[in-house]
Amino acid sequence: MNINQLKENTKKIENWLIDVRRDFHQNPELGTEEYRTHDRICQYLDEMGIQHKTLFKTGVIADIKGEDESITVALRGDIDALPITDEKSVGYASKNKGICHACGHDAHAAIVLGVARYFYEIGEKPPFNIRLIFQPAEETVGGAKPMIEEGALEGVDVVYGLHVDETLNVGQIGIKYGAMNASSDTLKVLIEGESCHGAYPSRGVDALLISAHVIVALQSIVSRNLDARESGVITFGTINGGTQGNIIANKVLLTGTLRTLDPAVREKMKKRIKEIVETLPLAFGGKGKVDIEPGYTALINHDKSVNTIKESVAQLFGKENIYEKKLANMGVEDFAYFIEEREGAFFTLGVRNKEKNIVVQAHNGSFDIDEKALANGVMMQVLNIYNSK
């Protein structure tokens, strides 16, 4: 592909991209409530004559036919915002009180639309079929899995996704081979004992004391049951139990999370958590049970697709702007479900610009992006399509 022509054609739609992104940014909506966002996406697609349909209430998929109809490349952009107050003093600040696109999903949606606009403007078919996926609820219940169940990946051969990255400068692209994001599970541990007067603890069973031992024992799973080269994190964020300072607690509820990068490690840790919670309290005369609620699966990139992205970066921005991440992110990303079903990869798009003071981290009310990154994202995804041979 002619890279200079790609850059020239994308430059022509840059102002349109910025307008679309700012429109989404001014009108953010929470997961599963993205009704206006859904309608605006459909409106943009209608203007370009692109057929589309709604999945999972507020999600949208759309198809563009390519020269070679035997291959379909999917591009995913999430569309939901966060329950955070927008603290920026800009003309495109959020109009919806307490809701803000503080994680860049406005940019993600604009970029996917931008790919459609690119081919619409040049009046040419893409080399392969394109499936555009606008996914709701990434930040909440996870819209990827329901969309897949409703057919979002039918006929798709490979899928690419991206996320804005405030740690990388505009023009840099982050890639990662293998595990890029962790899986997560919610832990609810109930410890039961027997109440009695605090002056005579021997007459009861102290659920609070048992809980302390359980917490310490569970933390030993990482240090003593996992290979030192494997990754796992158990975190408890709440401990609730007891009614008064002079009464031995009869029940304690612990809530937390389990995060891992490997499916086998995930199962091993879940097994050990269950064993410890159910057996250790018995030594103190109490009982324990755990509810492990499955969350997102680990995001594990396919090497072939990472190589495609790497090739695109080198062609567009030069090899020096490839940032190969050595460590995985222990946060979650439900794009994982797409590449669990199909070949594909996730990458990050540099949006940082220190000269413009665009340096604030995501999930902060002052978060913003250098909007030059929008065109970069479109060019990356267009080139990924061409390079998906």
Rank of each mutant, 00 (worst) to 15 (best):
Q361F: 14
G365L: 02
I339H: 04
M330W: 09
Q361K: 12
V332D: 03
L374V: 07
I292N: 10
F347C: 07
N357P: 09
I300E: 05
T260N: 06
K289I: 01
L299T: 08
K268F: 15
I309W: 07
E275H: 14
A249K: 01
K319E: 15
E311T: 09
N376F: 04
G286L: 03
F338V: 00
K310F: 13
L327A: 15
G286P: 06
K270Y: 13
D303L: 02
N307S: 11
E311Y: 12
G377A: 07
A375C: 07
G295H: 07
P294I: 01
P263G: 05
A328I: 00
F346S: 00
V332E: 03
K325T: 06
A345M: 05
F367T: 00
N250L: 03
A264G: 12
I276K: 05
A298H: 05
K274N: 13
V265A: 07
L258Y: 14
S366T: 12
L254P: 08
E333H: 12
V351K: 00
A314Q: 08
V313G: 02
I248L: 10
F317L: 02
K356N: 11
L261Y: 08
E340Y: 11
I247R: 12
L349Q: 08
G377N: 06
A362E: 03
I276R: 03
N329T: 13
S366V: 06
V351I: 12
K304S: 08
V332R: 01
N301P: 13
K274I: 09
L299D: 03
K270V: 10
